Simulated scan of single mutants.
Amino acid sequence: MKLQETIDCRSWAKLALVLCCLATAPALARADEPNASARDGARDFDFDIGVWHTHIRRILDPFAGGQHVIELDGVVTVSKVWDGRASLEEIEVDGPTGHWEGMNLFLYNPVAHQWSQSYSNSKVGTIGAPFVGEFRNGRGELISPDTLDNRAVLVRAVWSNIETNAHDYSESYSEDGGATWQLSFAAHLIRAAS
Results as ranks from 00 to 15, higher is better:
M1E: 15
L3Q: 01
E5G: 04
T6I: 06
T6R: 01
I7G: 02
I7Y: 07
C9L: 03
R10V: 09
R10K: 12
S11N: 10
S11H: 08
W12C: 09
L15R: 08
L19N: 03
C20N: 08
T24V: 11
A29N: 03
R30Q: 14
A31Q: 15
R39K: 10
D40W: 03
G41Q: 02
A42M: 08
F45C: 02
F47R: 04
F47S: 06
F47T: 00
V51M: 07
W52A: 01
W52R: 00
T54F: 09
I56N: 12
R58T: 06
D61Q: 07
G66V: 07
I70S: 10
E71M: 13
L72P: 04
L72M: 15
D73N: 08
V75R: 07
V75Q: 04
V75C: 07
T77G: 04
S79V: 13
K80C: 15
G84H: 05
L88N: 07
L88H: 15
E90D: 12
E92L: 15
E92S: 11
G95Y: 12
P96N: 13
G98H: 14
E101A: 12
L105I: 08
L107S: 02
L107Y: 07
L107D: 04
Y108W: 03
Y108R: 00
Y108G: 01
Y108M: 05
V111N: 08
A112F: 13
A112Y: 12
Q117D: 11
Y119H: 14
S120R: 05
S120D: 00
G125I: 01
I127M: 08
G128R: 10
F131T: 01
V132F: 04
G133K: 00
G133Y: 01
G133R: 01
E134F: 09
N137L: 06
R139L: 01
I143Y: 00
S144Q: 10
P145L: 05
D146C: 14
D149L: 14
D149E: 11
D149I: 12
A152L: 10
V153T: 14
L154I: 00
L154Y: 01
V155F: 02
V155A: 09
V158E: 03
V158W: 04
W159C: 15
W159I: 11
I162G: 05
H167P: 04
S170R: 05
E171I: 03
S172R: 11
E175V: 01
D176M: 00
A179W: 09
T180Q: 08
Q182M: 07
F185M: 10
F185T: 10
H188R: 03
R191I: 02
A193Q: 11
